[in-house]
Simulated assay, not measured.
Amino acid sequence: MLYHYGGDTIRVGFIGPGKVSVSLAHYFTHKGIKLTGFYGNTVLNTQEAANITKSKLYYNLEDLVKKSDILFITTPDDIISTIDKQLSKFDLNNKSICHTSGSLSSNVLINAKCYGALTYSIHPIFAFSSKNTDLKELEKIFFSVEGEITNKNSEIIKLLTKLGNKYFIRSSDTSSIYHLANVLVSNLVLSLLEIGTEYFINLGLNEKEALEAIYPLVKGNIQSIFDKGFVKSLTGPVVRGDIMTVKNHILMLKEEHKDIYKVLSLNLLKLTSLKECRDYSTTNNSVDFYQENVLNNLFSHSKKHKDIYEVLGGIE
């Protein structure tokens, strides 16, 4: 379930002066949230973060803890447990301790919890590529929240409410699948786009030219999916049943890309079967496109799609 309401100002500090923390800190102050400052291992980077956000550099972690209601740990994942142990040396009663890792649950902050803190994983669903993230872009992002959400008056809910961003609450046992979902639609999409761009470069374009060429295509597809959903945005040879085109693609593919092409194309074929069944069901009420044999429904009236399925390795 998504939540979206309004709230109060809270004092927030950051441990780790990287791209995520500086971007979030700048955004928080933009939204009227009081920023206490930064603590980090290197004075130079921490001072830079404080300067960018017009906040304070803390040389002592305990001082930052005392001055903050909420602390965000924005270090690499493998350091979070170390920070958790350091925090357990201090009075953490009435403090909220968060990390921004999407792959770890709030349970990694077990020491902070034992010493009085409420602990959370607060993950912004966004790829932070610099410390100067556009504030307008940050207004659009969703947050996922996992941890000790007791009621709508908790400090974390007040913070998210003040930001005005939409968010959803998830359980601690979802961290792995949640992070997988993020990686699939972000990092692996980047990898797939790079692979596709390689073939444009083989045609004589440089990387910049190739990216400029594909940008309208990629942007248009994303917008179509957002507006109409996946099934109604389907295009291409698999959807049309162009078996010779698919065969030619497989011949042209580098060996290391063939499995990727086949797996993704088979998924397109499944989406195509949903589309076809939905179209067919408008004239035949007996078709249930949610049943497991939806592909067989497609193949029963479309030999070309069955042939493509066989070419892609769907049938031994």
Rank of each mutant, 00 (worst) to 15 (best):
F128Y: 10
L205N: 06
D77Q: 01
E148G: 05
R170F: 11
N51V: 08
I73S: 03
K232M: 09
H30Q: 14
A25P: 07
N151W: 03
G164N: 11
D134Y: 08
K140R: 13
E155L: 06
I52D: 06
I169H: 04
L295E: 05
T133Y: 12
K113R: 15
Y39L: 07
I141S: 09
G18F: 13
G7Q: 05
N182H: 12
I141P: 05
S233W: 03
L57F: 12
F72M: 11
K232A: 12
D242G: 01
I260C: 13
F299R: 14
S265W: 05
D173Y: 03
V246L: 11
N293V: 04
L253M: 15
V183D: 10
V294D: 10
T36N: 11
I97S: 00
S233A: 09
E146R: 14
S281Y: 05
V218N: 07
Q291G: 02
K95S: 04
D69H: 09
T74E: 04
N93E: 03
V189Q: 12
T174D: 08
G102M: 02
S273K: 12
I214L: 12
T272E: 08
S224F: 00
K152N: 15
F299G: 08
G147T: 06
N107E: 03
N182L: 09
I110W: 08
I201L: 04
N187Y: 12
S144F: 07
L71N: 03
I157V: 14
L253V: 04
K270F: 13
I10N: 10
V263F: 13
C114L: 11
H4W: 06
S129M: 00
N202V: 08
K56Y: 02
Y59H: 13
G196F: 09
H305C: 03
T36Y: 07
L268Y: 14
L295D: 06
K208L: 05
T235N: 02
V185L: 10
I177W: 08
A181K: 00
I243C: 10
K31P: 02
E316Q: 13
H249G: 01
K140A: 06
D259E: 15
T283E: 12
F143R: 02
E62I: 08
G7V: 02
K228P: 03
Y27I: 08
K95Y: 05
L109R: 01
L118N: 14
L61G: 01
N297H: 07
L211Q: 15
L57P: 00
G236D: 06
I10F: 04
S88I: 03
D91F: 00
F143I: 14
A117N: 01
V311E: 07
H179G: 09
G13C: 07
S129Y: 00
T74D: 01
L217A: 09
S106K: 05
A213L: 14
D91E: 13
P76S: 00
S233N: 12
C98K: 00
S68Y: 00
T174V: 04
S96K: 03
L193W: 09
E137I: 13
Q47V: 06
S154H: 05
G40F: 14
S224R: 15
I260Y: 15
I308Q: 12
Y27R: 07
M1W: 06
T119Q: 05
G229A: 13
N93V: 15
S129E: 10
